[in-house]
């Protein structure tokens, strides 16, 4: 299990990185944390002609938490975001989800942006970006910088709306409106495994503590994170109806770990649990 040979470029600033990525095109792979890419290389399931290692690119290891939200640079490790009190204050769902991502040693290397770009349908962070309707900032030599909203970014399993010339330079997780709570619930076979099913929930209350909006994103039960607005059901106080709506929307499949019917059932349970917890937090917010 040794990676195949590849050409190697290690740019030191963004402009050079974009030029390198454009130069190698389809035949290249960007290496950031490597926690998804290197296993594929070691198993020889990927064999890029060139690896563009962005670990030395200046200015990509940023983490800024402002009133609008949290922006995470391409080289910012998951562990740093998880530990950041500032990020947790602005967008608590990040920490809630990151604690469920693999194990500490993986989070020390793995990047938030890398997980989004890898777009594993069972991964937590894409669901977080989706439920918050955050965005990924892409940059390329030809097109400059542009922000792609989550609903357009995830296009299929392990597929995103980024071209071969694009570098994902950051991701943006919007801040929560007032009186809003979040929760991430999942069931995985072992602690730290990819979720059999997972639900990220965001619930906003009105000033009178009636429900204003409730939204969930589901992981592991479709080709991309599936966002479902359950304001109507949850607003009527019927979390079971919300769960039912969500169950109808997902497209789970069988795999070695669980059957589709179980995943469909599980999503309902997790939806109710996540909505309940997010609502409690919204009421406390």
């Amino acid at each position: 299990m040794k990676p195949p040979p590849f050409g190697y470029r290690a740019p030191r600033e963004v402009g050079q990185a974009l030029a390198d990525i454009a130069a190698v095109g389809e035949d290249g792979k960007v290496l950031a944390g490597g926690q998804s890419l290197i296993p594929l290389l070691n198993m020889r399931l990927a064999a890029p002609g060139t690896v563009v290692d962005i670990n030395r690119v200046a200015g990509l290891d940023t983490l800024t938490a402002g009133p609008d939200g949290v922006r995470v640079g391409a080289l910012t490790r998951q562990a740093r975001v998880e530990r950041s009190e500032e990020a947790a204050a602005v967008q608590p769902l990040l920490r809630q989800a990151l604690r469920l991502v693999a194990h500490p040693a993986i989070r020390n290397r793995g990047t938030v942006v890398g997980s989004l770009v890898h777009a594993d349908p069972a991964a937590e962070l894409p669901a977080v970006l989706a439920v918050l309707d955050g965005s990924v900032r892409l940059a390329s030599v030809a097109d400059g910088e542009r922000d792609v909203p989550a609903r357009e970014f995830f296009t299929g399993p392990l597929e995103v709306a980024a071209g071969p010339d694009d570098l994902a330079v950051s991701a943006f997780f919007p801040a929560l409106p007032p009186r809003t709570g979040t929760a991430f619930h999942e069931v995985s076979r072992r602690h730290g495994d990819f979720a059999l099913a997972g639900v990220a929930a965001v619930v906003t209350m009105r000033a009178d503590l009636g429900l204003e909006e409730a939204r969930v994103a589901c992981a592991g039960v479709g080709p991309v994170p599936i966002v479902v607005d359950v304001t109507a059901e949850a607003g009527a106080g019927d979390r079971a109806a919300a769960a039912h709506t969500v169950r109808e929307r997902i497209e789970p499949e069988d795999d070695v770990h669980a059957g589709a019917a179980y995943r469909r059932h599980l999503i309902g349970v997790l939806t109710e649990r996540a909505l309940a917890e997010a609502s409690r937090r919204a009421a406390d917010a």
């Binding site: 490597g34 926690q35 290197i38 040693a105 290397r109």
Partner: peptide, 8 residues
């Protein structure tokens, strides 16, 4: 702590 097998 990091995985040395997942690091070049």
């Amino acid at each position: 702590p990091v995985r040395s097998c997942l690091t070049f």
